[in-house]
Lab assay of single mutants.
Amino acid sequence: LQLFIKTLTGKTSTVEMEPSDTIENLKAKIQDKEGIPPDQQRLIFAGKQLEDGRTLSDYNIQKESTLHLVL
């Protein structure tokens, strides 16, 4: 599924993920695209901070969801 990652600067990146992927996997993919180390990334979806060990489906993240990346 395609996700949009929006940064505080207003920049939006697109990443392709599976519902079974963990937040950790997602942060690794963001690191590949943006060069931001996972330990500096905080991802927010629906007002919640996402935890590394959980999966996208745990948070009911659907295709074309927008996640907010806070550093």
Rank of each mutant, 00 (worst) to 15 (best):
L3R: 00
H68N: 08
H68A: 06
G35A: 05
V70S: 09
Q41M: 14
D39M: 09
S57V: 07
G47W: 04
T66L: 10
L1S: 04
T9F: 13
F4T: 11
S65L: 04
T9E: 12
Q2P: 08
Q40A: 09
I44G: 03
V15K: 01
Q62H: 10
E64I: 06
S20A: 08
K48I: 14
D21A: 10
L56G: 01
A28I: 13
A28Q: 13
H68V: 14
I23K: 01
S20P: 03
R54Y: 13
E64Y: 15
T22W: 04
L67R: 01
Q62S: 11
I61S: 02
V15W: 08
G53Q: 10
A46P: 00
L26H: 00
R54H: 12
L3M: 04
I23Y: 01
F45A: 02
M17F: 11
R54A: 08
S13F: 15
K11E: 10
E64C: 12
T9I: 07
P38G: 08
T14Y: 11
V70G: 05
E34D: 09
K63V: 07
S65E: 07
K63F: 09
Q40E: 10
L50R: 00
D58I: 03
D32T: 11
T55H: 06
L43Y: 07
E16K: 09
D58G: 04
E18V: 10
I23W: 01
P38C: 08
L56E: 00
K6W: 08
T7E: 06
D39Q: 12
T14V: 14
M17Y: 11
Y59F: 04
E34K: 07
E24T: 08
H68Y: 15
S20F: 12
E24L: 14
K6M: 12
D39V: 09
L69F: 03
K29R: 11
K48W: 07
A46T: 05
K29N: 04
Q41Y: 15
S13K: 07
L71V: 13
L1I: 14
R54I: 05
Y59V: 03
H68Q: 11
K48D: 06
L1Q: 03
K6L: 11
E24Q: 12
I30S: 00
K27E: 01
T55L: 10
K63H: 15
L8P: 14
E51D: 08
Q62F: 09
D52A: 07
L69R: 00
P38R: 14
E51M: 11
E34A: 09
N25D: 13
V15G: 01
L50N: 00
K48A: 09
L71Q: 08
S65T: 09
N25F: 12
E34R: 07
S65W: 04
F45C: 02
I30T: 01
T7W: 15
S65V: 07
R54V: 05
D58N: 05
K27C: 02
K33M: 15
R54P: 03
T66M: 08
K29L: 10
R54T: 06
K29S: 05
L67H: 02
E34V: 14
L69Q: 02
Y59C: 01
T7H: 14
L8K: 11
R42M: 13
L43D: 00
D32G: 08
P19E: 08
L1F: 14
T22K: 08
E24P: 02
T7P: 05
M17D: 00
E24H: 11
M17H: 04
P38V: 15
D39S: 13
T55F: 08
P38F: 13
S57F: 10
N25Q: 15
Q62I: 12
S65Y: 07
L26M: 04
Q41G: 03
L50D: 00
L50T: 02
L69P: 00
D58K: 02
V15R: 00
I36R: 03
L8R: 12
G10K: 04
Y59A: 02
E16S: 11
S57P: 02
I44H: 09
K33E: 08
T55G: 03
Y59W: 02
P38I: 15
V70C: 07
Q62D: 08
P37M: 06
L67I: 15
K11R: 12
K48Q: 14
Q49T: 14
S20M: 10
Q62E: 10
A28W: 12
K27A: 01
I61W: 03
E16C: 12
K11S: 09
G47Q: 04
L8H: 13
N25G: 08
M17E: 00
D32M: 14
H68E: 10
Q40D: 07
I61G: 01
A28D: 06
S20G: 13
G47F: 05
V15A: 03
S20W: 15
Y59T: 01
L56I: 10
K27G: 00
Q62R: 11
K11H: 13
L8C: 15
L3V: 09
E64T: 08
D32Q: 14
K29V: 10
P37T: 05
S13E: 07
E24C: 06
D32Y: 10
E24I: 11
I30V: 05
G35D: 05
T14P: 05
K48L: 12
E51Q: 10
Q2T: 15
V70T: 09
E16F: 15
